[in-house]
Design a protein around this nucleic acid. Structure first.
Lengths: 160, 160
DNA sequence: TGTAATTAATAAGCAAGCTAATTATATACA
DNA sequence: TGTATATAATTAGCTTGCTTATTAATTACA
């Protein structure tokens, strides 16, 4: 690929926005947003997690997670309980209300994938997905190399 | 690809977020954000566009564009002028301040691409990029088929 | 033991996107 | 002409995500 290809500047952002727009529409009838659903998805894998652990698994800040959970709690999908051994920690628990939605979320996700990759051969879709996972890891590494702004700039521009 | 692959649920969103985080850091010293830079990029291609036309080209709402331009104007990168033939229209013009930043933006974008696709063969990167463009179009089509919520749900779920 | 450093969560505040509603202007057409 | 419709931009208000700062509790260690 030509690295001066300016299209990379918008495809990633556009795809993310379009996906969210569609998924939000699918979930709206159930009182959920895309990000909130994603929190539930993580709790389906493992319930009763501390907020910080959820944030870590979702690569999101502690503040962002706090807001998501607050809204999920307000809508009755989860509840927070202070950890008995470490009172700084709040553990997030799925409530019954949420459990029935898992299947719907999975179905919507599958449908959205079908739409996104429609007209693409399975082989190619697999290759794209594979490539995306390494792009994601590359960016994550670049971010991890240094959280400091000036240094991040250095890391990126020093490779010029 | 297996359409039940849940990884699609986060790769796109993650890549978009990570890219913005890195690009924002690169642009911060110049008083710009990723989205604001993208507006300027469109004005470099064609200056003096109405806000609505910019919104259309960026696949963004009129309100979002309004906010971006307001901040760009406050920082002195652009100015708005009411169209003389249609007083509803405000045209956006690049100011000198912005023109010198074009080269920097291009350089940052190129560097970010290199980071994102590092370790990937050019051939594969090209294929991934190609696949992404059609994913983007697929989603855009799905959104365009019907703006209405219920109908969008139908479109997606009816393919089950 | 007691002070310092770390950690979990929250608060405050900004940018970006979205939707719905409003205002002002232009256009269509009866 | 005059009324209805359509369009451009803005306002208000929501969610997500980010950063920085604060509070409370825990852990490290002198």
């Amino acid at each position: 690929m030509d690295y001066t290809d300016h299209r990379a500047g918008f495809v990633f952002a556009d795809i993310a926005r379009f996906r969210v727009r569609l998924f939000d529409r699918l979930l709206a009838p159930h009182g959920l947003t895309t990000s909130q659903a994603w929190v539930l998805a993580h709790l389906f894998i493992e319930d009763n997690l501390p907020q910080t652990e959820l944030a870590r698994r979702m690569d999101v800040g502690a503040v962002t997670i706090g807001g998501l959970i607050e809204r999920l709690e307000a809508r009755g999908f989860v509840e927070r309980k202070v950890d008995s051994e470490d009172r700084r920690v709040k553990r997030v628990l799925l409530k019954e209300e949420a459990k029935s939605i898992g299947r719907i979320m999975a179905e919507c996700g599958r449908t959205l994938n079908e739409v996104a990759f429609s007209g693409m051969e399975a082989e190619k879709a697999k290759a794209v997905m594979d490539g995306l996972l390494s792009v994601r890891q590359n960016l994550l590494d670049a971010l991890a190399e240094d959280t400091d702004i000036k240094s991040a700039t250095d890391i990126l521009l020093s490779k010029k």
